[in-house]
Design a protein around this nucleic acid. Structure first.
Length: 425
RNA sequence: GUGGAUAUAGCUCAACUGGUUAGAGUACCGGUCUGUGGAACCGGAUGUUGUGGGUUCGAGUCCCAUUAUCCACCCCA
């Protein structure tokens, strides 16, 4: 084979698209019902956008971006995440003056130069939502409710919601110092990465999967005693609201998330069935991003993103529970001799005008083939047109399930299918 | 980026301690078979054994390199 797909990318074939279509449809409909509108931003953005938003110490920025220089010398990237571009558009398109909150959702293809693995690709797709302009805990709860609602519509009940708060800048600073003090006494038992994190981003140590680090983490100070009254109240407000909405959650003190812009509430929906890549949906609040990093007006914001590949993978076992589109033809038309091939196309054209799935034998196959093909393609009805039928204008339509035939005029075929008459056969 | 496993027909897998022309099921194409025949039977095509080197009289099998995939670390959706 001369060319192969590039490492970490995938071809999405028709069978998978049938599933993915349902995901997209459910998720889009649900987002609209929560008052969100769809937005699409470019796949190419300036590199600086991510360095400032996602964080210049994060892995995504330091080693995973697909960067390129265009012909005018601009430093561009294939976007590695969705939120920053939406925020840029929010400011650039003056959505800052729209009535608050401004609610946006998007489907986006993202690129990260990582080592491919199950549920992790270099090019992948996300559905995401962002809500700008509300700092009320009810905004947090509502967006979690949106995630919960659409997952429920997709027949997911086994996903667990992990939730935590990272505090605001003020309380996080104090907590951060306390963490550093604590971990310094264990410095030698921490893994190499975590020793570095001690200087750059001590919060990430809480997330480390290394066994010896995990032991240290178990007794590490929790953020909650360090929360300021505002943050404490906010988090309690969110949890209280989730209780009322009957959305089960698990307060996970070790949940931190890898993008630097998060503040206060962070959450993830996690599956047990995806191996190491268990996070299907993740998000949180990022009150400082627009003002501090992107020079916009002070704007509290919260959002989440869901991985379409992961969710589709999990849905693979639930095909029968979902309202999947069928690609099986309703009618298979075969023809023998004369102008019957053209006549077949004519009949098909009328039916297709009404979105009926019609398959026409373009080759003029033998009778045996006709039946085999109709069977294989899972067609419901079979119509064979020969010169005899062409002359008389009378054809017989065979129900391939009951194996019964029904005689009718060619001109009556559309009404036979479109008015539901076929139920009588 | 680090570690481990794997790679044979479109798919699922065979091929003895290295030994004829690398096989089977399935899928595909055709025939028996121009007319309501969906079955059955018969036949056909498909491979640089992931790629490139090496050892050997001889390599799918052993060695080295390389690429891809999978699993874990890491990262995250």
């Amino acid at each position: 084979m001369k060319y192969k797909r590039v490492k970490g990318t995938r071809d999405i074939l028709p069978q998978e698209w049938i599933l993915r279509e349902v995901v997209i449809d459910v998720v889009r409909t649900t987002a609209y019902s929560f008052g969100y509108g769809e937005i699409t931003t470019p796949i190419l953005e300036e590199a600086g956008l991510f360095i400032h938003s996602v964080g210049d110490a994060s892995d995504i920025v330091t080693k995973e971006m697909y960067t390129l220089v265009d012909k005018a010398g601009r430093d561009l990237v294939l976007i590695p995440e969705g939120t920053a571009g939406i925020c840029r558009a929010y400011i650039e398109s003056k959505m800052t003056v729209w009535p608050k909150p401004v609610k946006l959702f998007y489907f986006q293809r993202l690129f990260r130069y990582e080592k491919p693995q199950k549920g992790r690709y270099r090019e992948f797709s996300q559905f995401g939502v962002e809500c700008f302009g509300s700092q009320s805990p009810t905004a947090d709860a509502e967006i979690i409710s949106l995630a919960h609602t659409m997952l429920k519509k997709l027949h997911f009940s086994s996903l667990t919601l992990h939730i935590n708060t990272l505090g605001c800048d003020a309380c996080r600073k104090e907590y951060r110092e306390a963490l550093v003090r604590y971990f310094l006494s264990f410095e030698s038992t921490l893994c190499e990465d975590c020793q570095n994190r001690l200087k750059t981003n001590p919060l990430r140590i809480l997330d480390c999967k290394n066994p010896s680090c995990k032991q240290c983490v178990a007794d590490a100070p929790k953020i909650h005693p360090y929360l300021c009254d505002v943050c404490k109240e906010h988090f309690q407000g969110v949890l209280g609201c989730l209780d009322v909405l009957k959305i089960p959650y698990f307060v996970d003190y070790e949940l931190v998330r890898g993008l630097d812009y998060y503040t206060q509430t962070v959450f993830e929906f996690i599956s047990q069935d995806l191996g190491a890549q268990g996070t299907v949906l993740g998000g949180g609040r990022y009150d400082g991003l627009i003002e501090k990093e992107l020079d916009g007006p002070p704007t509290p914001a919260i959002g989440f993103a869901m991985g379409l590949e992961r969710i589709t993978m999990l849905l693979e076992t639930k095909r029968t529970e979902l309202p999947l589109r069928t690609i099986d033809p309703m009618l298979y038309i075969a023809n023998f001799g004369g102008n019957t091939a053209t006549l077949s196309l004519q009949i098909a054209q009328d039916l297709r005008q009404n979105n009926m799935n019609v398959l026409v034998d373009l080759e003029g196959k033998g009778m045996k083939k006709v039946f085999e093909t109709a069977e294989k393609r899972n067609a419901k009805y079979l119509l064979v047109i020969g010169e005899e039928e062409e002359k008389t204008g009378i054809v017989s339509i065979r129900n391939l399930t009951t194996r019964e035939n029904k005689e009718l005029e060619i001109s009556a075929i559309p009404s036979f299918f479109l008015k539901g008459d076929q139920n009588e056969v």
